[in-house]
Design a protein around this nucleic acid. Structure first.
Lengths: 196, 196, 196, 196
DNA sequence: CATGAATGAGAGTTCATTCAT
DNA sequence: GATGAATGAACTCTCATTCAT
């Protein structure tokens, strides 16, 4: 595949991302993507053979540019500071309406569990837990926070965030409700939030 | 609508429930339900005019026979015991594969947020939080457990359970992982689980 | 068929008439009639086996109570007066929107030409021409009006009225346009309308 | 839409015209058209999204090749000659059974009055009246015929023709009856027909 | 007589996918 | 590579008609 082809494929992926963010996974048809890209029906099939394949590539593409703790953590941030930063970032994600793939991802997993090697969600979850666990452990070592089981505490945060995300996309959840829960999470780790 | 009609309608609802449990919400067609019930195409339309309507009635029907703390709580159970019972019940729900409407419910909410009055998920969530909060408050009063913010603790449990349910339906989650998390939850309330 | 049955049948015919007036012929379903009569589906089939049959009976029923020159013509009216009265009556018919079967009748004839014996439209047309011809002949004898061919003149009036009716139901026609045409018709018979 | 598409669309329109001429408007289904064209179900939807749209295009296409006085009128025809030619042409139209859209057009107008801009019937009627009026006026100026109100006389002809057309499609009308009426019409304009 | 649940054929419509150009 | 016309399977929904009660 030539250089031009690669660019075109990426172009389709980017446009398709918007479509999936807008309509979810299941409702998206090849025609939707074709229309969004302003290419021909047959043209799309040169690069992808199904919406599934397009979506997998959207996910792959998304994955690449993503780092949950990206940059904002300075050399000498405390564990508490890092956790707060992380939660603030997650809150944005939870409340993000336009441009979020959350619904699409859920639908995708509901319908067709991907192979292990393509299981982005799991990879992401594992990576997040690993980092959170490390941050908590460091915090405990420093005496900044108290936690008997850093591993399970990290998972607890993950589960809670997932629950918030799910509820946000179903029954809806307010910004304040998220704040209150975050404060509670921090309090279970012995961190008193001083108003953000 | 005569007595017979009512029974037939309930029959369709019951059969449809299985279909929704199997295929989710979106993928289910009127034909799927027709086939499951072994009735005619037009016959189904005598009772329901869309899959949406069938699903809402499935949910309504489900709701009725449901009480999360049903019966199992004896008069003099301790708060800790009640919480453990509740969590055990939830674990079954989370791991239930066949017969679970979880996926369908998620899909349903993704595509069409129901009116307030038909918002079963929210009602259920609110009810659960209310009870959990009360149980925790009683536990605190009795000195069984420690909790600075029972309301937020109750919500934390709800969010965590929702997260576990979501992850169980997407990336999958093991029975042991659920157990470990439950023990952690209880530990944050000052309850030491003795194995169970 | 007992007395009660006869009344019920007439009841259905009367209700069905409204339905046909409202929706035309083709668009009317057995269900529409059933709903209008508030009887059971099967019940309707006891009296009629198709919308066609119902419509034919509506037409028959309509026919009975109808006489175009009914009553309004006094013993010593002039021919011109009779013609004007007739035209005034026809104008009402042409402009009548609600309650008119015109569209339904057209549709009915388009779709299924009835047997000679059930050809109400033709019978009505023939009767009308016969009377008009006689009126014109009498007028000519009295020197009230001039006409070389009363038979064709009568038909001319019939055709014109039919044309007005058709156009009224398709492209629409104004009350004034009808008046002007009526004055013209009368003028070809040597009658000068004095304003009416 | 490429050149080929245009031809295909015209092909469909032509085939559909036959179907509408045969079955009227309302009774025609997309399937009928599909069958007549020997194309696939989905294929038709590439060009038209409803029978209504097909029919409108049939009408538009019909309109184009149509001129009621086309060619046959020589430079020095008298008004009377022109009128006779016109009526002869109309007679063909009235009696035409196969290939006539009359029924379909009526049905179409009965169910859905088109927008002003698509109101072909009205446009055609207006154009016809305008020309007839002019012909009559010229005839009067030349002393060929007598008429006190050319405008209304022109409309009278239009209404009569419409009436004949309607009756021809409902109760039926004979060739001779049309001839007699035409002679009568001409006689009211002071023209004695010499046997055609 | 009267009911109304049930049937099944058939209409409209959409979409993934193919293929000649 | 790229196009877009074409296909046909599948889905939703309606309605005349029947029939057990």
């Amino acid at each position: 595949m030539g250089d031009k082809s690669v660019r075109k494929k990426q172009f389709i992926i980017d446009k398709a991302r918007e479509v999936f963010a807008e309509k979810g996974y299941r409702a998206v048809t090849m025609k939707d993507i074709v229309d969004a890209c302003d290419i021909s029906r047959g043209g799309l099939y040169l690069y992808f053979e199904s919406t599934r394949q397009v979506f997998m590539d959207v996910l792959k593409s998304d994955q690449e540019g993503e780092d949950v703790f990206s940059g904002k953590v300075s050399e000498n941030s405390t564990s508490a500071e890092i956790l707060v930063l992380f939660l603030v970032e997650q809150k944005k994600e939870i409340l993000k309406k336009r441009g979020s793939l959350t619904k699409a991802v859920y639908e995708f997993y509901f319908e067709e569990r991907p192979d292990r090697k393509d299981d982005f969600l799991r990879k992401e979850a594992d990576a997040t837990v690993k980092i959170l666990k490390r941050v908590i452990e460091v915090g405990v070592e420093n005496g900044e926070l108290t936690c008997a089981d850093p591993s399970e505490a990290a998972k607890s945060i993950l589960y809670t965030l997932e629950g918030l995300k799910a509820l946000s996309n179903t029954v809806g959840i307010s910004s304040e409700a998220i704040d209150r829960q975050f404060i509670y999470i921090l309090s279970t780790l012995g961190i008193e939030d001083d108003g953000n």
